[in-house]
Design a protein around this nucleic acid. Sequence first.
DNA 1: TTGACAACATACCCGGTAGTATGTTCATCA
DNA 2: TGATGAACATACTACCGGGTATGTTGTCAA
Lengths: 213, 213
Amino acid sequence: MTLSVRELVLDNSRADILQAAATCFAERGYAQTSIDDVARRLSATKGRIYHHYPSKADLFADVFRTGMDMNHAAVEPHRRSAGSPLDRWRGMARAHVRQMIETKAFQRAVWEGVEMHLRGATTPEQRDELTRLSAYRDEYGNIFRAVLAEGRAQGVFHFEHIGIANQLALMTLNSPIFWYKPRPRESERDVARIVEQVVVCALRGLGAPEEAE
Amino acid sequence: MTLSVRELVLDNSRADILQAAATCFAERGYAQTSIDDVARRLSATKGRIYHHYPSKADLFADVFRTGMDMNHAAVEPHRRSAGSPLDRWRGMARAHVRQMIETKAFQRAVWEGVEMHLRGATTPEQRDELTRLSAYRDEYGNIFRAVLAEGRAQGVFHFEHIGIANQLALMTLNSPIFWYKPRPRESERDVARIVEQVVVCALRGLGAPEEAE
DNA sequence: TTGACAACATACCCGGTAGTATGTTCATCA
DNA sequence: TGATGAACATACTACCGGGTATGTTGTCAA
């Protein structure tokens, strides 16, 4: 299922910092978030954060990495499953969308990290850390792309350019990080329905056959 | 067709500033862009910019507004056309995607502006300017939503929740501002094919009937 | 019991940037 | 032709925030 931060990050103190940082970065963006903001959210001061992280950029990188780690862990089982490409893609997509919703703060940081990398980010040293993480993210995108290619070869998916198709599909799957807001008294069932609508939309976009499963 | 900045903005000096600002904001983001950056791109100094705009926030707001004005101008004719909801939606979508590609810098500013508004932006005064612009953007989104609703009533589109469907469709149509890069020696025909793939993907996602037009 | 270290808090420095105050140049018009 | 104002450039201030240097507290091991 969906991994929480505390499950993935052993150190409790660091996990708290990561969660607070992810929330701040998601709320205000990297540049607008000061280290003091993160500390304030922890009812602490800079000292605590700089004791664990050498710089703001490193803290952000750790949020980025943690978000991606959680995604990989959630999607990997479905990729390895024995079903058809269509079934595997759907399984991966569902897991991914659920990740976007349930670890939204981290996923927004991932998004902004990729953006920062595409732009010309900061110092040369932090730059290749971002490059590594961005490659990590690309690799993740390629997992979906591979299943997509396999499915097209079998005549399940229909599209013109696989790069564009993959981009569009992933964009759809990612989109909840921008518009999803938990409703008051929202049930697990409600979330599942949202996930399903997103996945169905993406599958249709890929030219997959409609079905009632 | 697609409007250029100089066509829309009468004052030439302001148009140059707007273009430079849009480019800078798109490249680095609002916070990372200093007024000096914009001035440098113009081979000028702060003085020029502050002569025309009272603050950085006002400059950004003008970029935002200009981007939205161009979108409205491009889409409006298709909305008013006499065709079926499906044809109108497709026409609007094509025009929109083309806007995203050809005025990408401005559209990224629009995107960031909406983001900034959803977060808690700056001073109370600049805040309600952003609120106005964000409402302007919502109104634009509702144009698509209205045609979508009309089409669903006629059985052309098929989806569960119209809010989510509209969000997903617009996200697809907007996505080129994130991944589109002009290729060397790219022809008008190439652009048209990209536009078509995006629009087709969005239409499928909405459950519209496939056709070869 | 003490010393050593982890885990912070406090106080301070300093670079970058928004905004301002004050020149300077050039065109226009009375 | 001189005065006036638009359209900038230059020089400066104030502040915010990343980073550092140093102090404080609790814990654990010898």
